[in-house]
Amino acid sequence: MEVRTIKVFTTVDNINLHTQVVDMSMTYGQQFGPTYLDGADVTKIKPHNSHEGKTFYVLPNDDTLRVEAFEYYHTTDPSFLGRYMSALNHTKKWKYPQVNGLTSIKWADNNCYLATALLTLQQIELKFNPPALQDAYYRARAGEAANFCALILAYCNKTVGELGDVRETMSYLFQHANLDSCKRVLNVVCKTCGQQQTTLKGVEAVMYMGTLSYEQFKKGVQIPCTCGKQATKYLVQQESPFVMMSAPPAQYELKHGTFTCASEYTGNYQCGHYKHITSKETLYCIDGALLTKSSEYKGPITDVFYKENSYTTTIK
């Protein structure tokens, strides 16, 4: 009895394709271990004539594949690729409408935090270190965002349907971005203890939790000093293409032309909904596939993004 075979390709990165001759009487799992086709788990399936010449994702289970996976995804987590594939199996079914010149995501599976993050990423200057993220990001900007969303979920250790947080998501993504040249110098002034300067680099240099107003941050924000008295913390120097200011959701007025974009969060910790506000020729609110415009805006804002380049204080 002759062994019926077909020729397929296996890959971990969709760049390096490895030619395989597979036995049609055995499952993919018996031949390769966990195997995925377009995100779908085909591990328990036997090869079919229609699979001839198709590319299958496999887990990096030998040295060659491990090197290829690390170079593309910059992670050695053995569960990463499987999590990416199972997320992709959902995100490829989502709709990605162009809204006001940006790629958004039609609401499904509690994905409003991903839509808000995706919209924000198209408006701030950011370059990702893992080629996987950078490639998928370019495709997302062009309207094909399924891979990018699935990668975000995998890097953030999230599953489809789980509630997510924009600030946490951005923080994970910033860790995989090139923020080497970003720098922030802060000064804390206390009447009792004097003053202390701190220099922050990388992710810490672009994120701040405690106030939404970048102007206020430049002037000074009140913080408790270690001595128990009130101290003032203010920005001395900022070198970065953008800054992200966050605070627990509270009524906040966004003035046209003073910011790049913002995240609105309605609801409580267990259950809520994100919308995205962007400042173009007027203010726009993007909620999944829905767009509304207004000249002014007041609502429960939790993150505001500002364009920056270089700032030095005039406070002496």
Rank of each mutant, 00 (worst) to 15 (best):
L114E: 01
A154Y: 02
G210D: 00
T64F: 10
H276T: 02
V58G: 06
R139N: 11
A108G: 04
S294P: 07
C261R: 01
Y138K: 15
I152Y: 01
S104H: 01
G272F: 09
T192G: 09
G299S: 05
Q238E: 04
G194I: 00
Y36I: 06
Y155K: 02
N49L: 13
S86M: 09
C285L: 09
P131H: 04
T103M: 03
G257T: 05
P249S: 00
G210P: 00
Q20L: 10
E281Y: 00
K275V: 09
Q238P: 01
H90F: 11
A154K: 02
Y265A: 01
Q31W: 10
H90E: 07
T11K: 07
Y28Q: 09
P249G: 00
T198R: 11
A289E: 15
L17W: 11
K316L: 15
A150R: 06
P60Q: 10
L186Q: 09
V203F: 08
L163E: 04
K127Y: 08
I286L: 00
K275Q: 01
Q98R: 14
V166N: 07
Y252W: 11
L65S: 12
T169V: 09
F174G: 00
E204R: 11
T64C: 13
T266P: 04
L88W: 09
C112T: 01
L283M: 08
T266M: 03
I286C: 01
P249W: 00
T199V: 09
E253A: 09
K46H: 15
Q195N: 13
Y138R: 14
K298R: 11
S263P: 00
P78A: 11
V304Q: 02
G228I: 05
L283D: 04
L179M: 08
S171A: 15
V160F: 00
S240Q: 03
T116C: 15
Y214A: 05
T198C: 13
T103E: 00
Y73T: 06
L283S: 03
E2Q: 11
P224T: 15
H18T: 11
L119H: 00
Q123S: 06
E125L: 05
L121S: 05
Y28D: 09
C156T: 13
Y84N: 01
V304I: 11
A142I: 12
F148M: 13
A231P: 02
R66N: 11
Q270T: 15
K191S: 15
T313E: 08
K54Y: 11
D165W: 08
F56P: 03
A289P: 04
Y57Q: 06
M24N: 15
A247N: 03
E215T: 08
I301M: 04
W94Y: 00
K255D: 00
L81K: 04
V21K: 13
N61F: 09
G267W: 03
V3K: 14
L121A: 07
N61L: 12
A150F: 05
K280D: 04
T226L: 10
A40T: 13
T10S: 11
H90I: 12
L65F: 10
Q196S: 12
M209E: 07
S86E: 03
A136E: 14
V42P: 04
K7D: 14
Y172D: 11
Y311M: 09
M207K: 06
A262I: 09
T75I: 11
E215A: 07
E68G: 05
A146I: 07
H51K: 02
Q238T: 03
V189W: 07
N16C: 09
L88N: 03
Q251S: 10
T292Y: 06
H18P: 09
T260L: 15
T192A: 11
T198M: 13
K233F: 08
Q30N: 15
K218S: 01
P47L: 05
M244I: 00
S79T: 14
R167V: 07
V99L: 15
P131W: 10
T76G: 12
K255S: 07
I15H: 15
L235Q: 08
M245F: 14
K46Y: 10
A40L: 13
F174P: 07
V236Q: 01
